[in-house]
Design a protein around this nucleic acid. Sequence first.
DNA 1: GCGATCAGGT
DNA 2: CACACCTGATCGC
Length: 625
Amino acid sequence: MSSFEGQMAEYPTISIDRFDRENLKARAYFLSHCHKDHMKGLRAPTLKRRLECSLKVYLYCSPVTKELLLTSPKYKFWEKRIISIEIETPTQISLVDEASGEKEEIVVTLLPAGHCPGSVMFLFQGNNGTVLYTGDFRLAKGEAARMELLHSGGRVKDIQSVYLDTTFCDPRFYQIPSRGECLSGILELVRSWITRSPYHVVWLNCKAAYGYEYLFTNLSEELGVQIHVDKLDMFRNMPDILHHLTTDRSTQIHACRHPKIKDFLSYICPVNAYPNVIPLGTTKDKVIEILQPLCRSFQSTEPKYKPLGKLKRARTIHVDSEEEDELFDDPLPVPLRHKVPYQLILHPEVFSMTTISQNQPEKLRQSTGCFKTESTQNSPLTNFIDCEESNSESEEELEIPSSVQEDLGPVTLPQQKVDVDVPQWEVFFKRKDDTTDEGLENFPSSTETGGSQSPKLFSDSDGESTHISSQNSSQSTHITEQGSQGWDSQSDTVLLSSQEKNGGDITSLNKGAYRPKTKESIPTSQMEQNVLCPKDTYSDLKSRDSEITTVPNIGEPTTLSCGKHIPEKNRSLNFSTHSDSQSSSDFEIPSTPEAELPKREHLQYLYEKLATGENIIVERKNVHS
DNA sequence: GCGATCAGGT
DNA sequence: CACACCTGATCGC
């Protein structure tokens, strides 16, 4: 959480990422990115009133941030008062005091921050010196050095103050895996899972709104599978992202919001509930105590609602399989779901993963927590972990009853046709080029709107000017994003050539920026083959497959880190770049001198363990007893 | 009824 | 441990 109060000593008349208290008097506002903790007060009535009175007050942000912000009706009142500034374009702003007429000039330059789409750092230049406000940022080594506007005369500008995101300002975070490294790890893990069968699905447990688009687009592009999200209207003008997303649940990769399964019991409201599994450290009586208030037998004498929070701790519930379809009766006219998603849950942020191999999807969808399965053949009811996805703001506008929506859940893979067990891959490859977004307001899948699951390379949109491309989206800090950053072509060339040299695994990431027409140059048949016959294509996976056998144990979720979060365990896994590994030199990170660099095979082994839920004893993190 | 704030949760 | 949220309770307007 940012402790920044909104004002900088040098330029106290402007406010950045804070819109409350003292900031209500600001002459100009700046928003670095669209995360809630940087938007405090932004939609408060006090500020709204201020806007109505002070007609010269504006909010400055990147075009992508503006787009994302205005997607939410709650910020619509800002519409006429937001001025978007292009990345790396020094822009002069007059700071006028409306009461006295006093005026101050300031030049602001937006620098890509690599934190989430649209995220920027602000470089201010004025009479009180040059200051840099970083907001939340995630730049790879060397990226700052490549920012021309941070320099003048061949050297870095004389910066008076820097207001810095110090989240990882700690020696423990000496070595942070690059985005590229995280991506390749996740990518291979997801690939190894979903290529096992059409019923193996992955659920990405994304906590924040925005910031995972990099992962989505790259997974989608590499795997030829669109990512299922709840909403995508915020990306309607960002086809580079949009084309990799879908609201169609029949995909193998999900990043949708997950039902808060506390809803489950109160939704079905049975007469009685009998716990079949008693979680460690509690007793049957205690579980019953928790369950009872949610049953009709109890409610008749008791006031209505009792939060089910504690139910979440009951990790496993067993339900007779005969009853499941009754229990989870689907209010929507969709065919019965008989097939089973084998589920891999990834937490891209914390990246704690739990695999679930099950035979009954409904059970999977409804249980509470991924704990331990019973040793019998009976399928336990295994639960999910909440999935926060994009813009929560407009969620309440979704008129589909949440219980309906949620009950369909992210795991209802084969719901479209009862006997169509195999995803229709061909739809992934017939792609229209139109990038119009008509109808998106109704949140159809992009497949439905004529997009396809076929990966669209970022560079496809090069030159198109009718939309905001993710060129501006600073989520794109590395790899593809080099091309999509909207950085000048020189930087692209430099960066990409270094990648080329390295010839990493993340090939498509390079081609996106480097060869605009690559998509067309890939024979469709070949791409299909990659998807349909993954084992041929990824022979290394074959061996892995043999290692991960049948129904894996669902153990303690293992934590592995990706992105900015680096828990102990992860660091102990030494997630760093191997010198001959797949990482490109552009993702270079400082190595911890005494650190051992893991071999790729070793990493892969670890991924497998993680995917199957087996414990890896690398460094024992004391979980609860 | 709305918001701000806090506590607690993932 | 931090992030980026979310939910629920309480209080003030």
